[in-house]
Each structure stands twice: as structure tokens, then as C-alpha cells.
Lab assay of single mutants.
Amino acid sequence: MGFKLLSKLLVYLTASIMAIASPLAFSVDSSGEYPTVSEIPVGEVRLYQIADGVWSHIATQSFDGAVYPSNGLIVRDGDELLLIDTAWGAKNTAALLAEIEKQIGLPVTRAVSTHFHDDRVGGVDVLRAAGVATYASPSTRRLAEVEGNEIPTHSLEGLSSSGDAVRFGPVELFYPGAAHSTDNLIVYVPSASVLYGGCAIYELSRTSAGNVADADLAEWPTSIERIQQHYPEAQFVIPGHGLPGGLDLLKHTTNVVKAHTNRSVVE
């Protein structure tokens, strides 16, 4: 069995187990497998329904001669939608809004960016022009300005110390501490036991640490421990890039980060 097929099978099995364990909360999309990078042309966006009122959005972007996937989250909030992270750029984010209108038909009224990198804030200006209120932590807003990236308009308070959590509509926002970046936030959907790890969490097929220019490698494993301790009931975990899975993604990420750190020390 090929690795790609095995990865998709694991996603399907995880979703099936969740649907059985929580039949009222989960209505997993039966329309197909989780979209992969090879299936999404740059400039297009796919939506994948995880649970009743919960979707991931998947886009792709060219970077350094390669094409990478990027995940975000959409959560229903009454007759409105909360968006977590842009679709990595203005063109993708405009396509995301169009796809949401086509498939869901509810307005996106608020959006949260989970850290300051372009795959999370690139497209904020498109959201703002569409009347979406954009939010991020003060740290993310400051770092985005320093980096020359787009800056969300509103500040999220109460997320300055490791372990801080605040309720934001249908989700809980959690600051686990520094990891992929010093400002990275985690998003949890309690009604569906869905954990969105953003770039602080890796997919299972990833074996290298990737972009760690703004990471705190020493603190990252401790931050992941905080996530595990705060959300032990999480059933569906979405990484910032690639295929979702279960809580095993947290341990896998820790292993990859520690291996990278150990290699760096040896070198």
C-alpha cells in the first residue's frame, strides 16, 4: 500500500471513529477524501466538511520552486461564519470567499490569524475590503508590521502568557507558548472536538522541520505538551499544512522538532 493511500485511509478511519463516538456532533463529509496538494491548482481553494458547521479550507501556493498546501478553518456561528487564517495570499483568499459563498452561503463576518507569517495573514486586506472584521493577538499584529505583512485590524486580548485561553464565538483560542513562531495560536472547536494546530503542528508525513527561522526550538516541545494537557479530548487535529489526523500529530511534531534540534547540535 502506497504512503499517500495509507495517509488518506488514516484520515478516513479517524473521521469514521469520530462519527461513531459522537453521532450528534459529527456529520463528516462523505463526498470524498481530504484534498491534497496535487489536486488543488494554485489560485483555487477546496472546502472539506469535518463536522456539522465545521470545515477546513485548503489552498496551495508556490514557494521556492515548489507547491505547498495550506489549511485553515471555518466555523459556523449562528447565521454567520468565523474564518481562521487566510488562504495564503490575496488571490487565494478572494477564491476562498467565493467558494464559501458557493458552498455554504453564509457571510464571513470575523477572521482570526493564528500567527504573523504570510500563509496566515496574506489576504487580510481582501477580507477587510469584503467587510470582514480581522483579528490577531497584539504580538501577531506587531510582528506582521515588522515583517511588512498585512496586519489584522483588531487585537485579541488575554493571550499574552503561555497557557492563556479565551473564548471567541464558537471557538476557544489558546496560546501554548512559542513553537513554530513566538505568537502562534491554537484554535479548538469544543462542539466538535476539532483542534486546529496551525503551523505549530505537523502532518504525519512530514519528517523535516522546514521553516524554523522564527521558531523557538527549545520551547516548542513544552508548548505541545500544554496543548495535549489542555485538549486531551480532541479527536480531529488539523495541521497548518497537509493531512489531518488525531492527537498523534502532536507527538510526531515533537519528535521531528527534537530530531532537528539534535542534528543542529551535532553539526
Rank of each mutant, 00 (worst) to 15 (best):
Lys8Gln: 09
Gly78Arg: 10
Asn262Pro: 11
Leu5Arg: 13
Ala130Tyr: 13
Ser181Pro: 04
Val121Gln: 02
Thr14Tyr: 14
Val166Leu: 12
Arg46Glu: 08
Glu219Pro: 03
Ala130His: 14
Tyr135Leu: 00
Val124Ile: 10
Pro244Glu: 02
Val256Gly: 01
Ala66Ile: 15
Val187Thr: 03
Glu225Tyr: 14
Arg263Leu: 14
Thr140His: 04
Ile74Met: 06
Gly123Pro: 04
Tyr48Asn: 11
Pro138Phe: 08
Gly89Pro: 04
Ala19Thr: 15
Asp77Trp: 09
Asn255Pro: 05
Gly210Ser: 05
Glu44Tyr: 08
Thr222Pro: 08
Ser113Gln: 04
Ile100Tyr: 04
His241Gln: 05
Gly72Ala: 01
Gly43Ala: 06
Phe3Asp: 07
Leu83Thr: 02
Thr253His: 01
Asp248Thr: 09
Pro23Glu: 10
Leu185Ala: 02
Ala215Phe: 03
Ser191Val: 09
Gly89His: 00
Ala144Glu: 01
Ser70Ile: 03
Tyr175Cys: 04
Phe3Gly: 11
Ala90Gly: 12
Glu80Val: 09
Ser56Asp: 09
Asp64Leu: 10
Thr153Asn: 09
Arg120Met: 01
Glu39Pro: 09
Pro244Val: 06
Glu99Thr: 11
Lys4Met: 12
Asp118Arg: 05
Pro221His: 06
Leu250Ser: 00
Ile201Ala: 03
Ser155Pro: 13
Ile74Val: 09
Ala87Glu: 00
Leu143Val: 03
Thr261Ala: 12
Ser30Thr: 14
Thr261Glu: 12
Glu101His: 15
Ala178Tyr: 07
Tyr12Thr: 13
Leu73Asn: 01
Arg263Val: 14
Glu39Ile: 11
Ala19Gly: 12
Phe3Leu: 08
Ile238Glu: 00
Asn211Val: 09
Tyr196Arg: 02
Asn184Ile: 06
Gly148Asp: 06
Glu225Asn: 10
Ala213Gln: 13
Ile238Tyr: 02
Asn262Cys: 06
Thr114Trp: 00
Arg206Gln: 15
Val67Met: 15
Glu145Tyr: 14
Arg141Tyr: 04
Val54Thr: 07
Ala133Cys: 07
Ser62Thr: 08
Phe26Pro: 11
Asn71Gly: 02
Val124Met: 11
Ile151Glu: 02
Ala95Asn: 14
Glu101Asp: 14
Leu159His: 07
Ile40Asn: 06
Ala25Lys: 15
Ala129His: 11
Arg128Trp: 07
Ile100Ala: 06
Gly2Cys: 10
Gly246Glu: 08
Leu97Pro: 04
Thr93Ile: 04
Leu9Met: 10
Ile227Pro: 02
Ile238Arg: 01
Arg142Trp: 11
Gly65Thr: 09
Gly242His: 05
Lys91Val: 15
Ile58Arg: 05
Glu233Val: 11
Tyr12Cys: 12
Ala66Asn: 15
Phe3Glu: 08
Asn149Pro: 04
Val28Leu: 09
Gly158Thr: 06
Val67Trp: 10
Ile201Phe: 08
Ala213Ile: 12
Pro35Cys: 04
Leu156Gly: 02
Leu247His: 12
Leu81Met: 07
Glu44Cys: 07
Pro232Leu: 08
Ser223Pro: 08
Leu173Cys: 04
Thr36Cys: 07
Leu97Met: 09
Tyr196Gln: 00
Pro69Val: 15
Leu24Ser: 14
Pro190Asn: 07
Gly242Leu: 03
Ala98Trp: 13
Val187Ile: 08
Ile151Lys: 06
Gly210Gln: 07
Pro190Tyr: 06
Pro107Arg: 15
Ala259Leu: 09
Glu233Leu: 12
Arg128Lys: 13
Glu225Pro: 03
Gly210Met: 05
Thr254Lys: 13
Ala98Pro: 06
Gly240His: 06
Arg263Ile: 14
Val112Ile: 10
Thr86Val: 02
Cys199Lys: 01
Gln228Lys: 14
Tyr231Gln: 01
Gln229Arg: 13
Ala259Glu: 11
Gln228Arg: 12
Met1Thr: 07
Glu172Gln: 06
Val54Gly: 03
Ala144Arg: 09
Ala200Trp: 02
Ser7His: 12
